[in-house]
Nucleic acid binder design. Sequence first.
DNA 1: CTGTATCCCAGGTGATACTG
DNA 2: CAGTATCACCTGGGATACAG
Lengths: 117, 117
Amino acid sequence: MKYEPDFCKIDDALTIIVGKWKPIILLHLLNHGTQRFSELRSQMPGITQKMLTKQLRELEEEDIVSRKVYPQVPPKVEYSITDYGRTLQPILEAMHEWGTKHHAHRLKKENTASHES
Amino acid sequence: MKYEPDFCKIDDALTIIVGKWKPIILLHLLNHGTQRFSELRSQMPGITQKMLTKQLRELEEEDIVSRKVYPQVPPKVEYSITDYGRTLQPILEAMHEWGTKHHAHRLKKENTASHES
DNA sequence: CTGTATCCCAGGTGATACTG
DNA sequence: CAGTATCACCTGGGATACAG
């Protein structure tokens, strides 16, 4: 095993799911199935069109999500998780679970730290 | 479940392990046990002192690694994974495994794409 | 409706030098 | 040996306007 970022396979996995909105997008598609661009957008208050497009494109590039365009006016584009993308689900769920516990862990730490000054 | 980055627990987990050298540092400490600062440094060609210090401090702040200082001259500082940090191991291993497969996945994709131009 | 294009800023990272 | 301090760069991300 090479101990450099370029050879670390964990980093290979991280680059897929890192991105301010990527985990949320993946949760949406995993839990709610195929979604239109506008559906995703409306469920994520705060994201800009540019960002949603960009994050989706990056996920598509890695075969995690698929993009289906309906050639019509006005345009209709649907996004969904690929079978390959679904292999990420266990990891995402494990991280969600760990993250939830860690959130509580931090709160407890902050409380005990409130003794000082 | 809130669909915003600030409430996404996956992001809570990600912030812990994201950092150019953090996965590598964690692998070192998980596989080789307690390590001195200079030992970590020598096994990670390319990292600077500043970065190694910073990444370790951030991991320490989250109770993932512990730091033991020996008050002597010259200084000696040892780093090790905490029991709490060890709860991340399954996730790291899952990501390593997925990342390894994904690496191959990408190579195959590049080859089939070599038809064009 | 589903995008692009442009400008901008903050933060993560690196190079380098200095210190107890 | 194990750090800090400083400067500089680059990329991710946001705001906004425009387009097919």
